[in-house]
Nucleic acid binder design. Structure first.
Length: 565
RNA sequence: CGGGGCGUAGCGCAGUUUGGUUAGCGCGCCUGGUUCGGGACCAGGAGGUCGGUGGUUCGAAUCCACUCGCCCCGACCA
């Protein structure tokens, strides 16, 4: 392709709204353009990158015997109602009506549709196992799109589904995907860590996420550098830093603590460490049950863990509700004589002695409290792991880092096959629900995560495998070298390089800047001066190297660079 | 949904506090010329319902009300 004939609308200035590197550079480089909040157009360069990522995904999926299909994006409401997800997705699902007022939905994922397909055709254990996948547009009405293409409402996802007759079979299908995913991320130039994850709305038992560590990520992952334990903070477990502590307060008594509300303020006021204060948080179920949650003052409650332990979604009560219920401000409520349906305490509370709780009256706390004083229904691990907590596996010190989720794999089990009646007949003649797994990769996220991780202040640094072009031939003076360059351009193309030829009638500086912004891994610079000695210059985007190469050695040089990058 | 910020030419911004001719600047774009290894220079030119609606006023980009859109921070997910 000639640059002069390409549609590559690069910009010199950052778009006003773009704060993330990937957003800035993908827009500035002419890869994407915003249409609406969380909805983007892919311009030629962006489309090329996406197609290259998809190609790698297809190769790796096909390698594990998966077969590509394409399901509809526009789906009938019935199936969603059958599995209950018409409600549980709630406003995250784009719902619409047809002209007959029938409910439809734009699919946010495809477990239901895929399971129906399996139900229709996979009747016998002889038909199993199967792995089906598609690369398709998903629609999710995200409450908050973010970071350009990092989190959007319409996005391309590779999703696959495995159907097995046995649990061992599911393990195998899952393992195949795990390996395929590792290959895909490696080939697309991403370093990922695999973390234990919450299965959330998908349901099922085990699930793992593939994470790219990056400050721009909105997930947080706990990692043990010593033994490799890794988990999303939503499900991570650990031992608390200091376990057994007791305070100086020997006697239980009410203490006047005027307008000290937060844990820090109370700790300062009383002259004890925050860990000795037991925070009381009021949670409510959707049905209106009140659950008082106790946790050590230096920790936070993990709502996802809490909800799982409790068995239903819990949400923090509003300030107004707390005041009406306790007749005290949120900062002063406590477990003693609390009129709630249930009290759950985090395990971190177990080993405290003579601790401090809210007094259920404004401006008062109670010190010297012990577990016997409180009617705790159960203890559970409901706290969010902190940086520096102790690894349960090996005793190492845990780290906490931000990460971008680029893939997620689930062992679904029989959740969907049971509710939709997808059964097969086993060897013994018994009808059994098909055992399923589901597996997703965000194609656009691979692209965005790549830019987040691989960029500098000049622009993007693509890995060779998914770069929009592999080689950019930059002509310093098109009028003097056009014929020569055309020969070179044709040769590179015929040798299999994805090459663009910057033949524009503009200054050399502008061409260099554009090339660096767009992030083409290798530039071949053609200047009349160097041509006299039969040389061209090779520039490597990643390292900034400039190497003079004899014309006849160019192909060999490019091939060796291709392997490195 | 809560909190914060922003909408003025294709892009980035000034002007709004304190209302007052014809709404500015840079980049980009068009024409002509000169340049040609790090976003070139000179001359000329085109391009704007100031997000929208309604109000206040002799007069509104500027004040008021409503409204739409976008971004960022907190509860969800590839």
């Amino acid at each position: 392709m000639r640059w002069s004939q390409s549609f590559i609308p690069t910009r010199k200035e950052n778009p006003r709204e773009a704060e993330f590197a990937s957003h800035r550079y993908l827009v500035r480089g002419g890869f994407i353009e915003q249409h609406a909040s969380g909805v983007y157009t892919f311009l030629p360069l962006g489309r090329k990158v996406m197609l290259k990522i998809e190609k790698i995904i297809r190769e790796e999926m096909n390698r594990i015997g998966a077969q590509e299909v394409l399901l509809p994006a526009l789906t009938s409401a019935d199936v969603w109602k059958e599995t209950g997800r018409w409600e549980s997705f709630g406003p995250d699902m784009f719902k619409l009506k047809d002209r007959w007022e029938r409910d439809l939905a734009l699919a946010p994922t495809h477990e239901e549709i895929m399971t129906l397909l399996a139900k229709e055709h996979l009747k016998s254990y002889r038909d199993l196992p199967q792995i089906w996948y598609q690369i398709q547009t998903k629609f999710r009405d995200e409450p908050r799109p973010r970071g350009g293409i990092l989190r959007v409402r319409e996005f391309s996802m590779k999703d696959s589904y495995s159907f097995d007759a046995t649990w061992e079979g599911l393990d195998e299908s899952y393992e195949k995907h795990r390996q395929a995913y590792l290959n895909i991320f490696k080939r697309t130039g991403l370093e990922v860590i695999v973390v234990k994850a919450s299965s959330g709305l998908m349901g099922g038992s085990d699930s793992e996420e593939f994470m790219v560590l990056s400050p721009s990520g909105e997930d947080r992952v706990v990692h043990c550098p010593k033994c490799g334990y890794s988990a999303n903070v939503e499900v991570a477990v650990a031992r608390v830093g200091k376990e057994f502590i007791q305070s100086k307060f020997q006697r239980k008594e009410k203490v006047h603590t005027p307008s000290v509300r937060t844990v820090e303020e109370v700790a300062d006021f009383l002259g004890i460490e925050p860990a000795l204060i037991v925070k009381s948080l009021l949670y409510r179920t959707d049905e209106g049950r009140d659950v008082l949650v106790l946790i050590r003052g230096d920790y936070e409650v993990s709502e996802s863990k809490l909800s799982k332990v409790y068995g239903a979604d819990l949400h923090l009560a509003t300030r107004e509700y707390i005041i009406s219920k306790f007749n005290a401000e949120p900062g002063f409520i406590g477990p003693l004589d609390a009129d709630v349906d249930e009290i759950i305490a985090d395990e971190s509370v177990k080993n405290l002695t003579n601790f401090v709780v809210g007094g259920n009256r404004d401006d008062y706390h109670i010190v010297g409290v012990n577990l016997d004083d409180i009617k705790i229904k159960r203890f559970a691990d409901i706290r969010e792991v902190h940086e520096g907590d102790i690894c349960l596996e090996c005793g190492g010190e845990l780290t906490l880092q931000n990460a971008i989720e680029v893939g997620h794999i689930f062992k679904l089990g029989t959740k969907y096959s049971s509710s939709l009646g997808a059964q097969f007949t086993d060897k013994d003649g018994q009808k059994k629900p098909i055992i399923m797994g589901s597996y997703g990769i965000g194609v656009g996220r691979i692209m965005a995560a790549n830019v987040e991780v691989n960029h500098d202040d000049r622009g993007i640094i693509w890995p060779f495998a998914i770069a929009p072009y592999e080689v950019n031939i930059i002509e310093i003076d098109h009028r003097k070298t056009a014929d020569y360059t055309e020969g070179l351009y044709k040769e590179l193309k015929s040798k299999g390089f994805d090459v663009i030829w910057d033949d524009r009638d503009t200054s050399a500086g502008a061409k260099f800047k554009d090339s660096e912004l767009v992030g083409i891994p290798i530039s071949v610079v053609i200047s009349p001066r160097k041509l006299e000695s039969g040389e061209v210059e090779v520039q490597v985007r990643k390292t900034g190297e400039r190497i003079d190469v004899k014309r006849e050695e160019l192909i060999a040089k490019l091939r060796s660079l291709k392997k490195e990058l």
